[in-house]
């Protein structure tokens, strides 16, 4: 994934930093179509069922563990997934927040010309960040496979959601993205409960977008968006 991400950035994306956001979105969208079709040509159009490694199959009896009776059971794999994603999250956060590299990237986000003038090769760092982003997304995909059998258009299903989550969280803010992700995810689960569904029929279908609209109207830059990042 790192290599593919790097290649993509080098070959295509870097020529688009100077163009408008609309063009950036569109060209990556075109690329997504191409990659999706290549995958379809190679692996076929059917979902490929993948099971988690045997060693973590089955469920954890959290209820007993916490002394609440055995009402709460949870598949091991999902627990592992949760822990794993928290770890990755911590890693990325630490990387961006506490290393010199991360500092440079954040500075470059604000004013790339200035950082360039300071004699730092921003271009290369952005390439690496793009590669890292691809790695993180790839890891998410690998870990998710046992939960939802992957097929060739799995990416498209998540594309819109993650786009919404990032914008709602606030561009350029990792914390915001995480917060928005949790907020929307939890709200979605709540809205799927039968009690709430009977109160507002169909709410489970639109809750995410409804909340996104409200948040964007109340907070123009998303939950934790900072001034000066991705402003048109």
């Amino acid at each position: 994934m790192l290599l593919i991400g790097l290649a993509m950035e080098r070959g295509l994306i870097r020529h688009f930093y100077k163009r408008t956001h609309a063009e950036q979105i569109l060209v990556t969208f075109g690329l997504a179509i191409v990659i999706q079709e290549i995958i379809k040509a190679n692996f076929g159009a059917n979902p490929i069922p993948t099971s988690a490694p045997d060693i973590v199959a089955g469920s954890a009896n959290i209820g007993t563990f916490l002394g609440l009776g055995d009402a709460i059971v949870y598949p091991w794999w999902r627990l592992i997934y949760l822990t794993f994603s928290l770890m990755i999250l911590g890693g990325v956060f630490a990387f961006l927040q506490f290393t010199t590299f991360g500092m440079v990237v954040r500075a470059g986000m604000h004013d790339r010309d200035m950082v360039n003038l300071l004699g730092i090769n921003v271009e290369r760092r952005f390439t690496i960040v793009f590669g890292l982003a691809a790695v993180v997304a790839g890891l998410a995909g690998v870990m998710y496979a046992p939960i939802l059998p992957p097929d060739y258009h799995i990416g498209m299903d998540f594309l819109v959601l993650s786009f919404v989550v990032v914008v709602v969280g606030g561009m350029g803010s990792l914390g915001g993205a995480v917060a928005a992700g949790f907020l929307l995810g939890i709200l979605q689960s709540f809205a799927s409960m039968n009690e709430i569904k009977s109160l507002f029929p169909g709410i489970d279908q639109i809750i995410i977008y409804l909340v996104a609209v409200v948040i964007l109207l109340v907070r123009p830059r998303g939950l934790m968006g900072r001034k000066g990042v991705m402003e048109d």
């Binding site: 709602v168 561009m171 996104a212």
Partner: peptide, 8 residues
């Protein structure tokens, strides 16, 4: 405006 309009 911009990307926020697209998302909305």
């Amino acid at each position: 405006s911009g990307i926020y309009f697209s998302i909305l």
